[in-house]
Write a protein that binds this DNA or RNA. Sequence first.
DNA 1: GGCGTTCAGTGAAGCGCTTCGACAGCTGAT
DNA 2: ATCAGCTGTCGAAGCGCTTCACTGAACGCC
Lengths: 337, 337
Amino acid sequence: MSSVSIKDVAARAGVSPGTVSNVLNRPEKVATSTRSRVERAIRELGFVRHGSASSLRAGHSRTIGLSVIDIGNPFFTDVATGVEDVASERGYAVILGNSSGDRLKEERNLLVFAEQRVRGVLITPSDEDLSRIDRLKERGICVVFVDHPAARADQCSVAVNDVTGGAMAVTHLLEGGARRIAYVTGPTTIRQCLERRQGAERALLAAGRTPATALQEISMTAMTARHGQQAAEKLLAQGPLPDGVFCANDLLALGVLRGLMHAGVRVPADVALIGYDDIDFASASAVTLSSVRQPTHRLGQVATELLLDECDNPDTHAHQQIMFQPELVIRESTSST
Amino acid sequence: MSSVSIKDVAARAGVSPGTVSNVLNRPEKVATSTRSRVERAIRELGFVRHGSASSLRAGHSRTIGLSVIDIGNPFFTDVATGVEDVASERGYAVILGNSSGDRLKEERNLLVFAEQRVRGVLITPSDEDLSRIDRLKERGICVVFVDHPAARADQCSVAVNDVTGGAMAVTHLLEGGARRIAYVTGPTTIRQCLERRQGAERALLAAGRTPATALQEISMTAMTARHGQQAAEKLLAQGPLPDGVFCANDLLALGVLRGLMHAGVRVPADVALIGYDDIDFASASAVTLSSVRQPTHRLGQVATELLLDECDNPDTHAHQQIMFQPELVIRESTSST
DNA sequence: GGCGTTCAGTGAAGCGCTTCGACAGCTGAT
DNA sequence: ATCAGCTGTCGAAGCGCTTCACTGAACGCC
């Protein structure tokens, strides 16, 4: 059973193993008649190239590693499908690693990638210490950052501008007539949360407002719907309600929405509400949720293209730090009409 | 640069390459003092075992392939994390393949798996023609079905009982006092939709009702929130409202909820509503959604354990077709109190 | 002291593939 | 007739590892 090797194919086609390898890897070097003879033998024997042998000899594999923080998060899922699309189209396999934000797990994943001698790695780093990334590069493995702008010019990255996104959201609230705005966010150690807040402040300044007085921040320990509901309760308890609420992600926003509705607050009539990420469920809630959409799928595609370009053309490759722009999605929760 | 091989380690530790290999693979065969000397050399040189060379020689790799229908679906995402957990704990890498329900893409993924000589494959088959699965097994690659009960005894599988789930949901509606029940479903070609309906009918019969008159089916072309909302509009247009609605998934249910609320129908006071899958957002909606939860994460874990057992102990391994039971999750949308 | 036994470690063979220098056969220019 | 320049194919070397038959040394035991 099984294990048809290149030799068997060669014997059947009456050529040498080297020629079979040429058919596989540089078909243009082989005369048409020989080629079709070999191809027939391959089909007849059901030959499948042995990837390990191939990459052992060739010195590189046709796999890439993808290490993300949480594959359960729709954001990363979308990124992953983008990666998968491009990779599989180019004949690459994707090895998935989920770090759960755990430094140790991430390191273990990177080790697995190194053992598999992946061609390159796509990674959303789980923290700012990038020494382990350098170690990969010393090994000759290309690395592209995903959703993390590279600080260095010798490093590709793709990310989405969170400052712009925050500004868009708050500008939209202001244009809808909001005066006092609350920013419901997760842990302030998260870069995205911080930058979205910066954007919010920038929007207030641009509208001639003072962030210190016009913006109230509610920081929660996690970014789930449950925490959003708690945030709403906090808002309700704290005295006069803001008339616009910007949440650092949609889950928080859905929680806030639920909390406000339970208290009889009307959205958007009493309070306008906007989230971030535009997850599927933003358009499924009782009051559909305005949000800021990121080109997640494209993020994965472009990251993969950059990575494969860097691998295939190490000399001509120009490192790029690509920053995508988010997009405002207006729905019922901010449409006061 | 880089590329520290087993030979370099051997030279540094003053042993033969074979001994280094033993330290890596059968540490108990090596004297403690030698072992620690080798381990130090490994650390000092930053040696990383070459997976391709290893699996070429050993005849099998430490990777498994996971082919799912839609990694964007939270169901599969949860399964994937379960798989990843077990695999990475046992030192296996997971190669991800997304078929998007496309037969061709699935076949391409399986080819990639075969080239990588994965140890085994976990697959949610995208259709019922399983000949390509047999071809894999001829190659000596173990296969475990995920969310698809195997019809054959020589094949492992894990799945969740959809008939039971459907019955649970409808029994719950009946116990809450519902008399006329609507089943909002997706395309009737989907096995899950059919079986959940069978469960619904079984529950009605058990309660002494006639499915033909007590159950009204609304079949939509897709299972999204938008389609759910359309289903609600259909229900509203069709005359007397049912007093219980069972949806084949949560997205449909959220759409129905939204459609009913917009029309001023109170949930659960006027209509009780239950979904399926217990996605995160079920507990985040304006009226939290009762649902049927499946042990998705566990599904992935168990599937992987079965697979690795079959790989590691081909002789003693007993094929199993495991059927998990779903679990009822009661929330506001069915709590008439 | 000779003998079997166990324990540690050796080293060569070879997994299936790619690569590259060698070479045969041919064409067309000299 | 000779030769340079191709094109197409061959075949051996070797990628880094595991495996296994083997060698020595150490240790009782009669």
